[in-house]
């Protein structure tokens, strides 16, 4: 069981940019089991960035200590709570894509688990290199 005193020594940082987000961006690489310190600029939540046509969602409060359940590189996103297949992925307080499969809290949120609502091709790119799979290099 993780306690508050455990979280004080956490050096791996994740940045949640808006209080409504269900993902946060890692500022340091995480290994499975690593616990994360969740940072964020609270002022930004005041910016008018609510999803189109919707009332602002209630602020999501993740459990105090978040742990990575798989390797997650810096710059990539971690799920702050369980996300169901077909559910919106929220970052900046807006929809940035849709879950293509269930994503558990602590897991990496990236292609192919997240799909653009616009760019159909990008869901098929290699998740690590971004290399397209629909172009042949022999």
């Amino acid at each position: 069981m993780l306690t508050d005193s455990d979280s004080r020594n956490i050096s791996i940082r994740a940045f949640r940019i808006d209080g409504r987000d269900n993902v946060a961006t890692l500022l340091d690489p995480a290994a499975p089991g690593d616990r994360l310190k969740l940072l964020g600029d609270t002022e930004l939540s005041a910016a008018p960035a609510s999803p189109a046509g919707n009332e602002p969602c209630p602020e999501e409060t993740p459990a105090p200590v978040l742990a990575a359940l798989e390797p997650i590189p810096a710059g990539h996103k971690i799920a702050l709570r369980d996300i169901e297949s077909g559910e919106d992925i929220i970052k900046y307080g807006v929809v940035i894509g849709r879950a293509a499969a269930p994503i558990r809290r602590g897991h990496l949120v990236h292609i192919p688990l997240i799909r653009s609502l616009y760019d159909e091709r990008s869901g098929h790119l290699d998740p690590e290199t971004g290399k397209p799979k629909d172009i042949s290099y022999e």
């Binding site: 940035i96 894509g97 990236h110 653009s116 760019d119 990008s122």
Partner: peptide
Amino acid sequence: FAGGLSTIEE
């Protein structure tokens, strides 16, 4: 994508 962005919306 390699840097962690997942969609054009993001």
